[in-house]
Design a protein around this nucleic acid. Structure first.
Lengths: 126, 126
DNA sequence: AATAGGATTAGTAATCATTATCGGTTTAGA
DNA sequence: TCTAAACCGATAATGATTACTAATCCTATT
């Protein structure tokens, strides 16, 4: 993957936030300072960055995919009230892959875990 | 949810297979014996059945959603080679929700776990 | 510094899964 | 039987994402 200006801008913008933006949101954030950039480029570069493990893709049940510039091992929890996505750190998380491999039908190498719940703010405003 | 002929047909067809079909696949399977049925009805009824907990929706990273008529607690593993979806039973699976709740940012009530790996058949054909 | 070839880009059209719409039909309780 | 709500088939519309194309950028090699 050779250097490209746009990809650097996209990666920096994603690393500068902890809001797990969608491709569209990232595009809107970048656009003012990079008027020429195309939405297709944002999608393309996010795909490449994710393929190279430089960012994470969050494929939730509802709405478009979200992205995360923090690649330290962690999971995500989506608030069912407000849709906000928060980080769940991996430390202390039991090894579910090992448990899955107790069944022999498939050799599991990876899990996607997506939690659902109600975030602190939404709990308090009830 | 009042009774409907179409929904019964869809539910029976889904329960009769263990292949985790997509809405389209289910539609194709049902069509010959129910020529009048509409694809929109299949989507609509699958949504309702899932909303009532009578079937499961598998929202994988690639391809359209798949459905499962087996609602006993279990998870799914998708083969990254052939795309086949197999069942992973929940017994012996550690409680990751409890681990996630150790962090206070959100009160987690549910996890979606989707495993990725290489299935027996694909391992053997290598 | 010039150049060549591949990678990348902007802009837009196309795709694909899914949902919305709408006029007509079925269901179930009064 | 009558009525209101739920349901249906057909098809148009939507929304996220990808494909396409000609132009531009990147980088290694002259």
């Amino acid at each position: 993957m050779i250097y490209s200006r746009q990809r650097e801008v996209i990666l920096n913008a994603l690393r500068a936030t902890c809001s797990h933006p969608t491709a569209e949101e990232l595009y809107s954030a970048i656009k003012p300072e990079n008027p020429g950039i195309s939405l297709a480029t944002v999608y393309r570069d996010l795909n490449q960055l994710a393929a190279h493990g430089m960012i994470l893709r969050i494929h939730a049940k509802v709405g478009p995919d979200r992205f995360d510039g923090n690649t330290c091992e962690h999971y995500h929890a989506v608030c069912s009230e407000c849709g906000r996505t928060v980080d769940i750190y991996a430390q202390g998380m039991p090894d579910v892959c090992a448990a899955a491999n107790a069944q022999e039908e498939i050799r599991v190498s990876n899990v996607l875990m997506l939690f659902t719940g109600i975030c602190k703010q939404c709990q308090e405003s009830q």
